[in-house]
């Protein structure tokens, strides 16, 4: 069986690096892998979605369809909420509890929905939320939110912890390695 993981967030939050670490980890395990990224205009603070699919069987579509994601890793609450129809029955939703107002909310043309996490839970969705921003800060950089979430994701897969750490070592610049490994471990120990 192949695994489908969707990463959703706001352009600029580092979802691309997260999908690359995940993709490289899957390769290290000997799986067939496809990663679909978003570049260009939507990266400018818009909703961004990347897909990672891997497993023993050949992966055909790089895109994940409705009700087909095993795990959704959300970098932001509203984007988590927007994506729930892509989650499989019994799939897991990993959410960074951060809230980022989109422009229609900032200028008063729309309201940011209240109590998103409890609304999602009421739908019977298996949800794990984390304050990844605080954890990233304590690891040494706000920018490490993505790697905190990778840590949490790692905990929720069957892939060995050491493989993730090796891939992080190869993917991030050496001067940020310590911060990123710390961030990974903070996410992993939730």
């Amino acid at each position: 069986m192949n695994t489908s993981i969707m990463i959703v967030g706001v352009g600029g939050q580092g979802t691309l690096l997260a999908s690359r670490i995940l993709g490289n980890t899957a390769i290290r395990c000997g799986y067939d892998v496809k990663v679909s990224e978003v570049h260009g205009m939507s990266q400018r603070g818009g909703s961004v979605v990347t897909y990672v699919r891997f497993g023993d069987e050949k992966v055909a579509s790089p895109i994940i369809g409705e009700a087909s994601a095993d795990i959704i890793m959300a970098f932001e609450q509203l984007e988590a909420y927007r994506s729930i129809d892509y989650l499989k029955k019994n799939g897991r939703l990993l959410v960074n509890a951060q809230q980022i107002d989109p422009m229609p909310v900032i200028i008063g043309k729309a309201k940011y929905p209240e109590n998103i996490l409890s609304k999602i839970e009421e739908k019977g969705i298996n949800i794990i939320s984390v304050d990844a921003l605080s954890l990233a800060r304590s690891a040494g950089s706000e920018k490490a939110v993505n790697v905190v979430l990778i840590g949490l994701l790692a905990k929720n897969t069957d892939i060995e912890k050491g493989i993730w750490e090796e891939v992080i070592k190869e993917t991030v610049p050496p001067k940020f390695l310590d911060i990123n490994l710390k961030a990974f471990n903070l996410g992993y120990s939730i």
Partner: peptide
């Protein structure tokens, strides 16, 4: 998408759980 092809050719549709409210859009910004 695979969903579209499944729907057209096999007449099958998979539906997930959607939010009960309309969500604010998040257009790109400067």
């Amino acid at each position: 998408s695979a969903d579209l092809i499944r729907k057209v050719i096999l007449k099958e549709e998979q539906k997930g759980t959607a939010p009960d409210e309309a969500l604010p859009a998040r257009p790109p910004v400067m």
